[in-house]
């Protein structure tokens, strides 16, 4: 998987596993995962907001962890399992509908980052308490201040998950 020192330190062709699709492409060292996902692959749900790891809008799930794609070098992601927000409707995750029904967004720009952070939480803990939801979402910034609705939405999604829907 990892190449030995024969590489010249420059761009290399690697395979990214995103939402169960494999993308083989030449990645330059200075490309962040967010740039690759958003700009090169056109998965524009992964948003650029602070660009410095301080807002959570570019959150994707990598090997089960909610991480900031703006602070991740894409070249370091070979073989990792990456999930972006676009996958949620494909797999029928109830978070998207729960967010819409609970008005857990205003302008919506930061929302996919919240949703992916919440998804990582529910993947680990399908029945979170309010404090656990706050623990998970406290690093996401919403300039519209929609915070209280996120708690309702995540609790609602957890309930829908319990109902046997995935």
């Amino acid at each position: 998987m990892v190449q030995k020192h024969q590489d010249d330190g420059g761009g290399k062709k690697i395979t990214l596993k995103i939402n169960d699709n494999e993308y083989s492409m030449v990645i330059e060292p200075h490309w962040t995962l967010r740039e690759v996902i958003h700009d090169k692959l056109g998965l524009t749900g992964t948003k650029e907001m602070c660009d410095k790891g301080a807002c959570g809008s570019c959150t994707v799930i990598m090997d089960g962890r909610p991480i900031l794609s703006c602070m991740t070098l894409a070249i370091e992601c070979e073989g990792r399992k990456i999930e972006t927000v676009e996958n949620l409707e494909v797999v029928g995750n109830p978070l998207v509908e729960a967010y819409a029904d609970n008005h857990a967004m205003q302008c919506g720009y930061c929302t996919p980052g919240f949703v992916m952070t919440a998804k990582a939480l529910l993947d680990r803990n399908p029945d979170p308490a309010v404090e656990q939801i706050k623990d998970a979402l406290e690093g996401n910034i919403c300039r519209c201040g929609t915070y209280p609705a996120h708690i309702d939405a995540v609790l609602d999604a957890a309930k829908r998950l319990e109902g046997g829907k995935k």
Binding site: H38, D39, G42, L43, T44, G45, T46, K47, E48, T84, V85, E86, L88, E89, L95, V96, E97, Y99, A100, D101, H103, A104, M105, G108, Y109, T111, P112, V115
Partner: peptide, 23 residues
């Protein structure tokens, strides 16, 4: 009450397009 936000699924599902996303 209880009327779902019409732009909600588009936004929460990452499908809503912003100018920043236009390519």
């Amino acid at each position: 009450r209880g009327i779902s936000r019409m732009c909600g699924k588009e936004k929460a599902g990452g499908r809503a397009e912003y100018t920043r996303d236009v390519q």
